[in-house]
Design a protein around this nucleic acid. Structure first.
Lengths: 137, 137
DNA sequence: TACACCTGTAACTATAATGGTTACAACGGG
DNA sequence: CCCGTTGTAACCATTATAGTTACAGGTGTA
C-alpha cells in the first residue's frame, strides 16, 4: 500500500480551490479538515509549492492555485509528491551467476513500465475539477 | 514505492518454472539467486502455496507449479501476495463538518478504483510465460 | 512600535512496515 | 539413526511515515 500523501494532497488542493475567503484558509483550518497536524499540512504545501502548483506568502494566511482545476491533472499532483519514482521496488543484486538472476531486473522493469503507463493514462485523464465535481461543491 | 515482494515472487516462480531438477531447488538455492535469506524465500513460498500457485512437501527439496506458466497471470501473483488491498492509502477521519472532508474518502475511492482497474488490465495481460520468454530461458 | 497571527522549516519522537536472522520442531530418504 | 530440508515462530535492525514541539521571520493592525 502506498502512503496517504497523494490523498492528503488532493484534499488540500480541493480546499484551496473551493475556499474563496483567503483569511480563513490557514494551515490550521486545513489541518482541521484533513484531520492532521498543521505542520504536516505546511510541509505538504511546501512540496506542492515547489512543484509550481500553488503560491503562498510567508506570514500571510491563504494559498492560491497557480493552475486552473480543469488543467490540473491528478498525474501532476502525483508527480509533485512522489516524483518520477518507480511504483514497485525491485530487489537488488540478484545473483548474476544465475540465468534468472542475471536478467530479472531488466525484465521486471519492462513489466512495471507497462503497468505504470496504464496508471499514467488514468491519472492524466482525471483533473482536480473532476474531483471537485464529484465532491459536488 | 511498493515493497519488493512482488518482484521476489516473480523471481522465485521463474526459478521454479525453469528448474527441472527438483533436488537442487532448495530454499537455499533460490535465496542464492534472489540474494536474500532462505527463510525469506520459504516465507514467501508459504504465501504462494496458500494461494494455490505451487506445492511442496515438508522435508523434501523442490517445489512444483500448480498452474501452467502460460495460465499464471501476474495479477494472480500480485493478489496472492498483497491480497485485494487498495493501492493508495486514504487518510482516515477527515472532518465531516467540512464539505470537502465529508465526501473526500468516497470520491478518492472512485478515483483509485479507476486507476486500479487500469493496473489490473495490464497485470492480467501478462503471464509468467511472458516473463520467462523475456528472460530467454 | 508592540502585538497577534501566520508561514516555513528544523529537529525530535512514536509507530509501523520491511526484510534479515536465529532457532527449532517435524519430515523424508539413505 | 543421521543429514538435509521445509515450515514457522520469534526477534532484531533499518527505514518510512506521520505527528509534535519549537522557533525564526514575515504581515497587518491597534
Amino acid at each position: 500500500m502506498v502512503n496517504s500523501r497523494f490523498s492528503v494532497a488532493i484534499h488540500i488542493l480541493s480546499l484551496i480551490a473551493t475556499t474563496s475567503d483567503r483569511s480563513i484558509l490557514t494551515s490550521d483550518f486545513i489541518a482541521g479538515s484533513v484531520n492532521t497536524n498543521p505542520v504536516v499540512v505546511r510541509r505538504m504545501i511546501g512540496v506542492l509549492k515547489k512543484a509550481g502548483l500553488l503560491s503562498s506568502q510567508s506570514g500571510l494566511a491563504g494559498y492560491e492555485l497557480l493552475v486552473e482545476p480543469k488543467d490540473l491533472t491528478l498525474l501532476a499532483i502525483y508527480q509533485a509528491i512522489d516524483g518520477p519514482e518507480q511504483l514497485f521496488a525491485i530487489h537488488d543484486q540478484p545473483n548474476p551467476a544465475c540465468a534468472v538472476g542475471r536478467k530479472i531486473q531488466h525484465t521486471l522493469e519492462g513489466v512495471y513500465t507497462s503497468v505504470w503507463h496504464a496508471m499514467v493514462e488514468q491519472l492524466q485523464a482525471q483533473t482536480l475539477q473532476d474531483v471537485l465535481d464529484q465532491l459536488r461543491i
